[in-house]
Write a protein that binds this DNA or RNA. Sequence first.
DNA 1: CTCACAATACCTAAAAATTGGTATTTTTCC
DNA 2: GGAAAAATACCAATTTTTAGGTATTGTGAG
Lengths: 214, 214
Amino acid sequence: MLNFSEIKLVHIDDHLLFAQGINSLIGNETFINELVHAQTLAEGLRIVEELQPELILLDYFLPDSNGIESLRLLNKTSPSSKVILLTMESNPDVMEKCRREGAIGFLQKSISKKALLEALNNALQDIPTFPITVQSSAETPNSPLNILSKREKQIADLVTEGFTSAEIAEKLFLSDLTVNTHRRNLIHKLGLKNTAQLVAFIEKLKFSEKGSGV
Amino acid sequence: MLNFSEIKLVHIDDHLLFAQGINSLIGNETFINELVHAQTLAEGLRIVEELQPELILLDYFLPDSNGIESLRLLNKTSPSSKVILLTMESNPDVMEKCRREGAIGFLQKSISKKALLEALNNALQDIPTFPITVQSSAETPNSPLNILSKREKQIADLVTEGFTSAEIAEKLFLSDLTVNTHRRNLIHKLGLKNTAQLVAFIEKLKFSEKGSGV
DNA sequence: CTCACAATACCTAAAAATTGGTATTTTTCC
DNA sequence: GGAAAAATACCAATTTTTAGGTATTGTGAG
C-alpha cells in the first residue's frame, strides 16, 4: 500500500450506522488525515467546498439527490476530488452512468475493508475501481458508441431521456451552445439524421447488448 | 363459401413461377371474374388504377418497392381495394406494420389453396386474415399503445424511424399540418414531453413486449 | 514538446418541433 | 339516426433543433 499523507476524505451518506462503520474501519488509517461525514448532499456540498478533499465516498441514494445528480454537483464544487460511489446493490447501467459522470470507483456496501482501502488507494493514484461482474452495456469492446467521447455519450444519454439542450446545459453546467455542438458531432459521428434516430439507436443498443454478458 | 360475382383480382409479384401457380390455383374459381398479374409495383399501380379491383394480392418484396410503401401507394390509387400481403417468411413486426397500413390479410406463400380462398372470401366480407402464431408486439391486449388510434400508431412508427413531419406527410399523402396534429395528440395521450421521449417509449415497448409470445 | 483530440463556446440562419387554438369531414358504434 | 371518436386541415407564435462555420483551452499519447 502506498504512502499518502494529508488526505482528506468526506463521506456522504444518510445511514448513520453505516457511516459509523466506515469511520471505525478507516478512521484510524494513517494516510487519512481528516474524515468528515455528511448526512445529505446539501451538507456534503458545503463541506466539500470548504475542505476540497482528495477523496469523497458517496452513497448513491441520498434523501435530497441521487448519485448522478450528486456527482455533477460535487464535480462542479470540487473538480479535483475523486468520488467513489457506494450502493447496496449494483446495476451495471447505473454504474456505467456514474463512470461517465466522472466517478473513479463504484463499490457495493458489502465490500471488505481490504477492498475498500484498495479502492481508496487506487483512486489517489487515478486508477478506477469498478466491479467487472457484468460487462457494462455501453462499454462493450466493439460497441459503436466507442467512437464517441465521454461527454458525447453522456449527452446522448440525456437526450434519450428527453431533456432539451438547455436542460442538459443546466445539468452539466455548460453553455447550451456547447451542448448543441456535442449533439451535432455525435449525430454526425454515428451517421444519423436527427434526434429521433439518435434515441432509437441508443435504445436499440441498450437491448441488443443486454444479456450478452449477464 | 359465399357467392360473389364480378370480382376483379390483381396479383402483383415479380416471381413468374409463383404467379402462374396462383393463376392455376384460383384462376378458375367462379367468383373471380378477372385475374390480372403485374411484375412490378409500377405496373401494378397502372393496372389497379384502371381496373379498381376488389382484391389485390401483393408480394411483400418487389423489385421497385417494399410492402409498406406499396400499400401506401395502392391505397392512394384505389382506396376501396382490399390488399392481402404474400410473403415467404413472416415477421410479426412486419405483419403489424402492414395491418396498420390497411392490409386486410397477411399470408405466407406456403399457404394451402383452401386457406387462400378463405382469406380472399374473408377480405371481400371485410374480415381480416392474419396468422396468430405470434401475438403482434404492438397490439398486445394491455399495451399502452392501445389508447392511440391507428393513424397515431402509424405516425409514431415513422417518427421513430427518423422521418420529419414533412416526410411523413408525403409518405401518407397528408398535409404536414395534419401530421403535426397527430404528433401533438399522441405525445399528449402518452403523457410524454417530446420526440426523444416518444422514440424511447416506442423502442422500449418493442423490446419489453418482445419474447412474451414467441 | 508537439500533435491530435476532446471539450468548451460563440455567431448566424434555416428547418423542424412544439404549443394553443379552431374546424370540417368521415367513421364507428350504440 | 345520432353521438363520439378519428382523421383531416388550418392559423399563429414560440422554442428547439439542425447546419454551416470558427476558435480557444486543456489533456493525453508519442
